[in-house]
Design a protein around this nucleic acid. Sequence first.
DNA 1: GATGAATGAGAGTTCATTCAT
DNA 2: AATGAATGAACTCTCATTCAT
Lengths: 214, 214, 214, 214
Amino acid sequence: MARTTKTLRGKIRKSSYVSKRALRRSEILSTSAKLFSLKSYHDVTMEEVARKVGVSKGTIYLYFESKENLYLEILENAFDSLVSLIEVELAKEYAAPKKLLEVLKLIFSYYRKHTDVLRILSRDETHLIREHYEMTERWRKRGLQLYEKIIEKGIREGSFRATNSKLTALIIYALVRSITFYYTTKKKPGEVAEEVYSVIVNGILNPAKKTMTA
Amino acid sequence: MARTTKTLRGKIRKSSYVSKRALRRSEILSTSAKLFSLKSYHDVTMEEVARKVGVSKGTIYLYFESKENLYLEILENAFDSLVSLIEVELAKEYAAPKKLLEVLKLIFSYYRKHTDVLRILSRDETHLIREHYEMTERWRKRGLQLYEKIIEKGIREGSFRATNSKLTALIIYALVRSITFYYTTKKKPGEVAEEVYSVIVNGILNPAKKTMTA
Amino acid sequence: MARTTKTLRGKIRKSSYVSKRALRRSEILSTSAKLFSLKSYHDVTMEEVARKVGVSKGTIYLYFESKENLYLEILENAFDSLVSLIEVELAKEYAAPKKLLEVLKLIFSYYRKHTDVLRILSRDETHLIREHYEMTERWRKRGLQLYEKIIEKGIREGSFRATNSKLTALIIYALVRSITFYYTTKKKPGEVAEEVYSVIVNGILNPAKKTMTA
Amino acid sequence: MARTTKTLRGKIRKSSYVSKRALRRSEILSTSAKLFSLKSYHDVTMEEVARKVGVSKGTIYLYFESKENLYLEILENAFDSLVSLIEVELAKEYAAPKKLLEVLKLIFSYYRKHTDVLRILSRDETHLIREHYEMTERWRKRGLQLYEKIIEKGIREGSFRATNSKLTALIIYALVRSITFYYTTKKKPGEVAEEVYSVIVNGILNPAKKTMTA
DNA sequence: GATGAATGAGAGTTCATTCAT
DNA sequence: AATGAATGAACTCTCATTCAT
């Protein structure tokens, strides 16, 4: 009996310990993510992170090898969670225009909820360290490919006209990035997505005069 | 005769002296601009700037009060020269669509020539110092207003349809920014401008099916 | 019992921690005070202070915000402790001459024990920083007032003749300062005080001939 | 004839050059003396000296080997001119009390006219450099000896009572120093000298009660 | 595991001094 | 003789990281 109890307690303790550790980790991650979203990498000090988390400086190093690693893990997490969301969406059997709209909706919603982390992700602090550079490059290429595929699918389906799909993908990527950064509005993410979608697909020209400019 | 020569020489010497100093200044500006475009503000050291320019650390301080000032001057120069270029274009009596196209051409050409400086300008290293923050904010607002005015003019003229002009301006601003950043191509700036223009005004939808999505 | 022990140990540890920090602080204070008493402010480097204390440069900054602050704290400490000593003496109900003698004794004793710090206090390095300037000015004015009051009290009581009390105060202030600085002797501070006192009150004239010079 | 003219011209030119050089030298000396009297040695920059004199930094080095030398020469000049003045006074066949009074008058007058330089001389920035230290020490010892001799003369003559002449000399030295530093008054130097003299010789005690304290 | 004291390399900046012109 | 551009050593201060407790 005693042993069982002990073992159980051990397990509980261990599992509770593990979850405590996991909790601390994510606490550090989210706290520092907020800080990194407000200032540049170099302007966030480990001292500050520790103070905000409510632990000592040394403790941070029990959970993360270095400041660099902490920073990279924030990026990785953000990157992975957004990508996996989009992956699900992409798998669905929608026509290209609807697919584009749905992805936009998804992204804008996600951004609204995870502003901190994504401000960091979107920032062009690209040359901090090689790992960071590579990660953001990977992320950007991944995003571009995603849009490119949708556009090419649309062109094949006949729903999109035959534009330069690389450039168009970049355009979409860019505006998503900037709108999440700078578009301050009370509209719901879904509405924003629709507005953006409308400009992308229809352009800004007055259809009545379209013949004049094409 | 001799006197004349002397006077002339005096003038030349003086002017050559002035230009020597100016030359050094711009040498430091362009060298450090290149460095700042490759790394973040904090990752560029004055030591490095000095070494790249080929002078000693102290020399930099003969030309610039501080690292901050050096950085801000790079930004200011870039900002001012681009703005004044655009201002000239805006004054012309074009219809909105042509105006938009011309401004895009102008910007892409400018970027091609001043990549270093404009990579810095476009970066979102927004929290370095108040002056920097204010300068980039000003620059962004100025750019957004510019596009917004063109779009509103177009709407009034009937050439553009009645979109959310604020959002549309942001979209244009964003894509210009990202394309100059990430669009690596051998096309001439003018061609890029036209491609971008086409996507903006016409959208990506196949006109044959346009009725379906509006 | 065990609990009591634990609690006690806890308290001891905490108090021992506090005193450790306090110890380091005062170690740094006294070491740097010695250095500052030997060289001018600018000639003492933080590197040197650290080396002499036996810690690294960074450590000094864990205890003091800046070199300036370190310096000012040395001054403030010296100033405060001497002033509070004198204050006690002044409150006593002595006649002016005895009061003067007692204050002199006090000051000379104090100086003997705290030479380092008071060499700094007495130095006329008046233009370092505004805080320093203000502090030494305050200290000087405070000292002068002190003597002035004693002298005026003496004049009122009839024990001192009616001299220019401001000038006399300055004279006393000055000689105290210089004697502590330059009078190297094996005499006890009390004896020095009495010698000085004697010169001040009686002057140096031979009483037998006093009528001749007055 | 031509030769003579040439020679003459050469001489004139040379002498005019020499005096020009001498003028520059003393201009630099007096300008920097003023600066050194306002700030500490380290807080006066060669840049500042040059600017105030109205020449370039390099020029200062054509007249003085180093900052240290410039500083030392200021001290030396002040020291020498005062000492030679006093020397003359001392040679006169006065009785000790009158001698003391005359020397005090001399010193206070001199200070009034050469405040800048003597503020530097009186400052206890004693450990700048060995030369400076030695010079101020020499100066102090010289001054002390001077007073000591007068006092001992007075004691021998019977005009002064038998005090500790070393201490008394120090007292006089000290108060002279501080009064010149801190005694702000509109009185003429001669009057100040007399006031000081009176306190020194008569003390501050009320003669009516003198018997009580002796 | 957690702490916080300690480290020390490296940053920006200053300034006495030198030197080509 | 005079300049002023250039130097570079030395300074104060910061902060990611380590380590004894």
